[in-house]
């Protein structure tokens, strides 16, 4: 399956716990002011890759704890992301997904869109909500503004409400 990506980072220390393989998914409609990656907005930017090719690269990163979907907006190419996430899990790796949508918004979306449900269910930690420049906090782990949350997805789905990591 094809996916349009803005770039790939094979070993990151700032996109979730442990060393992580990061896929920057191309395309975002939000256009937050102060967004760190405005080059990821254009849905025709970046480059097209095959999910199989990405999966092979992930397999090489022997020290990585997991894979992070960042953006852009992973839920705009949700089918490809869900497929990848489901293929990554059997490798013993965990999934962190960044989204400009909140957990609650995604829950609602998942009722109508099976792929959203799949990606959500495959995700271990969701970093949710748009970046808001006024809420900027330099000392937060793995996120840029105070409104964004680290959500433990499995616990949250079981509880039917957002459960945060700390």
């Amino acid at each position: 399956m094809k996916i349009r990506v803005a770039g790939i980072e094979k070993e990151s220390v700032v996109d979730g716990p442990g060393l992580r393989f990061v896929i920057f998914v191309q395309g975002c409609t939000r256009h937050c002011s102060g967004c760190h990656n405005p080059d990821t907005w254009d849905f025709y930017g970046g480059q097209e890759m095959d999910t199989g090719e990405i999966l092979a690269q992930i397999g090489e990163g022997r020290l990585n704890r997991g894979v992070t979907f960042s953006g852009g907006e992973p839920f705009e190419q949700v089918a490809a992301c869900a497929l990848l996430a489901e293929q990554i899990k059997p490798l013993g790796m965990d999934i962190v997904t960044y989204s400009g949508y909140t957990f609650e918004e995604l829950q609602t979306k998942s009722l109508a869109d099976e792929d959203v449900k799949r990606l959500l269910e495959a995700t271990d930690i969701l970093v949710d909500g748009p970046f808001i420049a006024e809420e900027r906090d330099w000392d937060l782990p793995f996120r840029g503004s105070r409104n964004q949350r680290l959500i433990l997805v499995h616990e949250s789905l079981a509880a039917g409400m957002a459960v945060q990591a700390e």
């Binding site: 220390v13 700032v14 716990p17 442990g18 060393l19 020290l63 704890r65 782990p141 793995f142």
Partner: peptide, 8 residues
């Protein structure tokens, strides 16, 4: 925020 990565 990622001592885990360093330990690996």
């Amino acid at each position: 925020h990622n001592p885990e990565a360093v330990e690996a």
